[in-house]
């Protein structure tokens, strides 16, 4: 029997929605996994889902979701609650599985542009540079059908996604945490902030989803981005145990991404257990 405590950072934003979908995903996850997975350590898993507002609550967690919300608010409240350093340790030293949606993706990036005048503290963990409010203000928020092949659900991973004042991943940086990013330094109109370095990871940044050129798809719905030779904006990335999406699966009622992520968490937990068993505590679960 394995107990896995999964936290959702509940400082501000849509944390309740994540917990609701995690509960739903856990049901599906158990019913499908138990039949097809022979691995005994995956068979008996008790998930518990908790809201995280303090360092003590965070320390109980095996994995964490950083929800959508206002990234400046979440970052400032975390700082004043004494949660920022524990969060950085959780993501970058303990390397426990973490998933950030929208504001969460911004906080997990090593670098962010389009910042408030006063700047903002980032947690880091993903060697990418994100641009805040990339698509514009609320009137430019939208829904889109997106292919998420990583779901591997046999339906091509077609997923209805909601983008609200969403960021995108502008660039993938060199794979060492705290890599100096000079990509946007010449652009003095926008402020870029960086997360402080911790320990580096060897894991590569994987691009899991792109949003096909929006303007084109709107103008002519018969052409796909692939046909136009346009790659599209990066809206989902993963590096080791850190996963980030620019959109909000928690607003859809569709628990497939949550189910997939629970699978990743279980894999990481099993990997970590084996690693400790072999006496190699520094082995990084993938």
């Amino acid at each position: 029997m394995t107990d896995l405590t999964i936290g959702v950072l509940a400082l501000q934003g849509a944390f309740v929605e994540h917990i609701t979908l995690l509960r739903k995903a856990a049901e599906t996850f158990k019913s499908t996994r138990q039949s097809k997975d022979a691995n005994a350590s995956i068979d008996n898993i008790a998930f518990s889902f908790v809201e995280v507002r303090t360092p003590a609550e965070l320390s109980r967690c095996d994995a964490l979701i950083i929800p959508g919300g206002e990234s400046t608010s979440i970052s400032l409240i975390a700082q004043r609650t004494g949660l920022l350093e524990p969060l950085r340790d959780f993501v970058k030293l303990d390397r426990k599985p973490v998933w950030g949606t929208c504001a969460g993706l911004i906080l997990l990036a090593e670098s962010a542009t389009g910042e408030a005048k006063a700047g903002q503290e980032l947690i880091g963990g993903l060697d990418v540079r994100v641009r805040r409010n990339y698509f514009g203000r609320q009137v430019e928020s939208f829904e889109a059908e997106l292919a998420l092949p990583f779901l591997g659900d046999g339906q091509g991973g077609c997923f209805r996604t909601v983008f609200i004042r969403a960021p995108v991943v502008e660039a993938v940086l060199g794979t060492s945490s705290g890599a100096t990013d000079t990509g946007s330094a010449h652009d003095s109109a926008v402020l870029t902030v960086h997360a402080p370095p911790k320990s580096a990871t060897k894991a590569e940044v994987e691009i899991l989803a792109r949003l096909p050129g929006r303007a084109q798809t709107i103008r002519d719905r018969t052409t796909t981005a692939g046909e136009l030779g346009e790659e599209g904006d990066i809206v989902a990335v993963k590096q080791g145990n850190v996963f980030g999406t620019a959109f909000h699966p928690e607003l859809t009622g569709d628990e497939r991404i949550h189910g997939w992520w629970l699978g990743q968490v279980v894999k990481a937990a099993v990997g970590a257990k084996k690693a400790t068993g072999e006496g190699d505590a520094h082995h990084e679960p993938v």
């Binding site: 501000q12 959508g68 919300g69 206002e70 939208f142 829904e143 909601v162 983008f163």
Partner: peptide
């Protein structure tokens, strides 16, 4: 999420109500 309004919602209601959900706890 579009179900949030039971009256036939405008197609972008999920996007409209979604921003409010992002403001929660704030």
């Amino acid at each position: 999420a579009a179900k949030m309004s039971a009256s036939e919602p405008q197609s972008s209601f999920a996007v409209k109500a979604g921003l409010a959900q992002m403001l929660k706890g704030g």
